[in-house]
Nucleic acid binder design. Structure first.
Lengths: 126, 126
DNA sequence: CAGCATCCGGAAAGATACTG
DNA sequence: CAGTATCTTTCCGGATGCTG
């Protein structure tokens, strides 16, 4: 059963909204569904990647947004950053256990979208 | 198994990126993970709602963004809009079968976030 | 040269007033 | 009631610079 407050008569309270405007869940949701958050998380699901690899794999992301997205995901404890003090620098990014839990819930969504996207965009709104 | 291209050695091709920059999946993903898309979809999962109800239930959304979000979700065939030609106007929004399929994949994510958000934001990044 | 930080212009989001 | 129009603010992307 859902716990996000969408089941009015089953005891969760509907009139207060889906999630209160200023609650931690909203903040985390914004981080995850930020423009690049989902793609970065999915990119790191299979294996850890270096900065440059991420930049190539997450097609279209700017360096600025990659840095910003990684910072937020790291601060939330989803992504682990390991920097080697060498020249040239080498920085590896990977998912934490928490990040893997989250991304596992993201993959069914991504798969469904990947399968249905063509039909969705080609179907006139009836 | 995931089909979004994150399993390099299992046959999906990794070096091309998670999802090509200009593909339908990216467009749909952007629509769904837009700032308010997820919350509107979840709000409509249990029951259809009128404009005013949506505005109250999706706490914090502006009228402009509610209108814009609903238009996009309607154009994608996730949301059905039924307007009664009466005064005062009455417009009901509900999920289509497609919208329900999608939102079913969203609820596990929302539930996980709702359960873990407090710990996520209170834990220092280690 | 890899991995960022900073600055700037355009685009998207937010607040609020107004209309049919 | 259910939206649009308008204005302000915040955000995104690109270019550039810096550091070892």
């Amino acid at each position: 059963m859902s716990t996000v407050g969408v089941t009015p008569r089953q005891g969760f309270g509907f009139t207060d909204g889906i999630l209160p405007g200023k609650c931690p869940s909203r903040t985390v949701l914004d981080h995850v569904t930020s423009k690049w958050g989902v793609l970065v998380l999915v990119a790191l699901f299979e294996e850890s990647l270096r900065w440059g690899q991420l930049h190539r794999v997450v097609d279209g992301i700017s360096e600025k947004m990659l840095a910003q997205t990684l910072k937020v995901l790291e601060a939330d404890g989803f992504v682990l950053r390991v920097a080697q003090p060498i020249i040239p620098p080498r920085v590896d990014y990977s998912l934490t256990a928490r990040g893997r839990e989250l991304t596992e819930r993201l993959l069914p969504l991504m798969d469904w979208i990947a399968v249905n996207a063509d039909e969705i965009l080609s179907t006139p709104p009836r």
